[in-house]
Design a protein around this nucleic acid. Structure first.
Lengths: 167, 167
DNA sequence: TACATTTAAATACCAAGTTATATATCTCGT
DNA sequence: ACGAGATATATAACTTGGTATTTAAATGTA
């Protein structure tokens, strides 16, 4: 069995490690979207929809700030979401530079589905995982990695769903 | 002040949050490489060099396993590192499919620099940060984000270096 | 009012990761 | 020894992120 180098290097490679674990969780969560809501929705779209749903229409800059991402990244993501029919952009009447992003009917429907079906399930599964771990950040990351290797987030969520549908 | 949506959604968006924080730490750590060793070295190259230094020559597949990444990703990264003169690939005599990756003199020099100058500094700064936080994973992530917003990892490392160079 | 500065978004380019597939080589059973 | 299947790596196509720069509009100041 080969050593996990990123893990072995400890604090010095914490960035790589957080990123790697984050990608793994995101991929599982995205997979679950398709299974739970019947429609696929890329993970980064989730947070954009949530931001618009929580705050109402936002311009690109505010969206970037509330997501903690760069403006060009958000511009491109919004381009894709417009193409997917999830949002529309309107030029602000008072300032033609500003484009205000609104949820479409479809976008609203998807975020409603996410709130009803996806987030509660993921929230519960991840909260359950997090409830099993404690200690230092590195200890918790190690424990989380181990738990997820034993059984993926996806499996955990699906197993938690079964009892509701069977009886 | 706009709400941080990823943070607000809690466990449901833990993946995005870990990834975002990881990218931030990685970017800062990479920046420090240039400052501390005088030469720039992309963050993903660090872990590859470390893996080869710890284990000796490795083939692509084992490298991928020890880094926890996909094989094609490692193949491409090795391509760049070959171009940068950090590693060489040798076809294994017993099996022509296998390519064994070796550190070059330059690669060995760079990992030695990293071990001497970069990792101890980053390890100390991150360990110090982690020593200031406790509680649940989400609590620790929130605390870490707050600490890093107050003062970046880069600043922390550089301030820790100054006392050594001044007196 | 005109011009310089600032600001919001878009664009261009690049890095790094993924999955799916192709290619080359090896191994094993007949 | 030959062909089927397994295995190691490479390639292709795509996703998502970033920084630096450009464009267009607004602002403010001489």
């Amino acid at each position: 069995m080969l050593e996990d180098v990123v893990r072995a290097l400890g604090h010095a490679t914490l960035g790589s490690r957080l990123r790697r674990l984050g990608e793994r969780l995101q991929a599982d969560a995205q997979d679950l979207t398709g299974i739970l809501t019947g429609k696929d929705l890329p993970s980064p779209h989730h947070t954009v929809l949530a931001a618009l749903n929580r705050n109402g229409p936002l311009n690109i800059g505010d969206l970037a700030a509330s997501l903690g991402q760069s403006q060009p990244g958000v511009t491109r993501m919004i381009g894709k979401m417009k193409a997917a029919g999830l949002v529309t952009a309107e030029t602000a009447p008072t300032d033609k530079r500003v484009s205000t992003i609104h949820l479409t009917k479809e976008g609203t429907a998807r975020i409603t589905e996410l709130e009803a079906l996806h987030w509660p399930a993921v929230e519960a599964a991840v909260a359950d995982l997090c409830g099993q771990i404690d200690g230092s950040l590195l200890d918790q990351l190690s424990a989380l990695e181990t738990l997820l290797t034993e059984k993926s987030l996806k499996q955990r969520v699906l197993e938690a769903q079964e009892p509701e549908t069977k009886p």
